[in-house]
Design a protein around this nucleic acid. Structure first.
Lengths: 234, 234
DNA sequence: AATTTAATGTGTTGTAAATACATATTTGTA
DNA sequence: TACAAATATGTATTTACAACACATTAAATT
């Protein structure tokens, strides 16, 4: 507030014109989860009459005392109770008509959470996990935002060890491969996939096996500690 | 304005709280040019006393009636007179203390212009081209923004035909290679470089030769028409 | 006119990475 | 104990990348 007062009184004529503060700014989070071999995204029923019945991403206006990453962490925390998740800024969306209630520019983030680990209070606040592939339309420009984040996710998982944020701590190579296939939308050769993963040297062999399966169990792996949670926000 | 009135009167209590409009939002453009075998960036002397003597990127607050891309095109047009340039959104920066005059969130763009083609009125408005490699510090967080855009540029030139926006319409392979080397900061093998470019199939052989050189002239090429100016702004 | 200079314009070969593909092994279950 | 279902792994082939050398052209110089 102190800063803003300085800005409005003492500063250049451009900045002080109140018109420029008539743009609101928000963050929207594309929260990906993985469950039952499906990539899912966390959506909420839109509360705007313009979009009655439609779902939207989780977002909120940015407060004057928090930076962009903090705002998206807050949204995530408030909505899901999670605070140890992967978050990455993707793109700013600012089309004039993107919000029916006025001019709102939004900064989109995607985040990755391990569904199995967490029980969200889903029903209480109309939050639901939706299979990404079944989503045809969303409120606002949120389908565009979802698609943009999905593209980003696809390129990121090939380059950096982010995908593990969707999995439980211990997982088999089969589970990992299934997840890659689900995100990329392709089938992968098991032998070549394992070679590729081996080369990256991301995984630690836990000397444990899967259990409670009706077939031969696979070894369990975990992401090496040094790779955990390294967000790149510029 | 009409929209905003609706927003402030009829809409949800969150959005209508005036506090949320106390954040200003701007665009900043990292305008790259290429001249005399050097990659340059267009800077302006900062007009804030906090940064007396320091240079800053070109930017402006976003108007309520223009979207993000439009705002950055406008900045470019107003400052340089150019309107046929390559522009790409890179990242949003929103640290609390990034602007000494108040809370300003900025969306950073990079753009590529062909210096030789254009005579800017540089001196009149304190605009100058600075060799990118010599820049140590800038006003605000603009050095961070510059570095972020530079990284993006480096990855983009390998993947998509954007680099040609820095060159005149006709160019030799030697000129192209020099530019790649300047941006990537490495030396490239001429034979391998030409093979790589040939595979991408971006270029049209013009059946013309360089002239006015004191050595053997090379063939001239142009970017194929179908690749010209395809910005990807999500 | 011959020579020098400085660049252009290819081609080959070796190495590393990506792909395609098949068989033996382990566990739980009928 | 035979079967179903998945694990675990190796090799041959193709493709991409890197390293490298020589003949050619035009202009400037002698």
């Amino acid at each position: 507030m102190e800063k803003l007062r300085r800005l409005k009184t003492a500063e250049s004529e451009k900045i002080s014109h109140l018109d420029y503060f008539n743009i609101a700014i928000s963050v929207d989070c594309v929260i990906f989860g993985y469950d039952k071999n499906e990539l899912k995204v966390l959506l909420i029923k839109s509360d705007l009459e313009e979009f009655a019945g439609a779902y939207s991403l989780l977002g909120d206006l940015i407060r004057t005392d928090e930076d962009l990453d903090t705002a998206s962490y807050r949204v995530l925390k408030e909505r899901t109770g999670l605070d140890d998740v992967y978050l990455e800024q993707v793109h700013a969306f600012g089309a004039l008509d993107r919000h029916p209630s006025g001019r709102v520019i939004t900064i989109a983030y995607y985040s990755l959470v391990d569904i199995s680990n967490h029980k969200l209070q889903l029903d209480t606040n109309e939050l639901h996990w939706h299979p990404v592939h079944t989503i045809r339309k969303l409120a606002f420009d949120h389908k565009l935002i979802l698609d943009t984040c999905m593209n980003r996710l696809q390129t990121q998982i090939m380059e950096r060890p982010v995908i593990f944020n969707l999995l439980p701590e211990k997982f088999s190579l089969r589970e990992l491969q299934k997840l890659y296939e689900e995100i990329l939308g392709t089938e992968l050769d098991r032998r070549n996939f394992r070679k590729k993963i081996a080369v990256k040297d991301w995984l630690q062999d836990l000397d444990e096996m899967e259990s409670n399966l009706s077939h031969r169990p696979g070894k369990l792996y975990a992401l090496k500690k040094e790779f955990r949670h390294k967000s790149v926000n510029a």
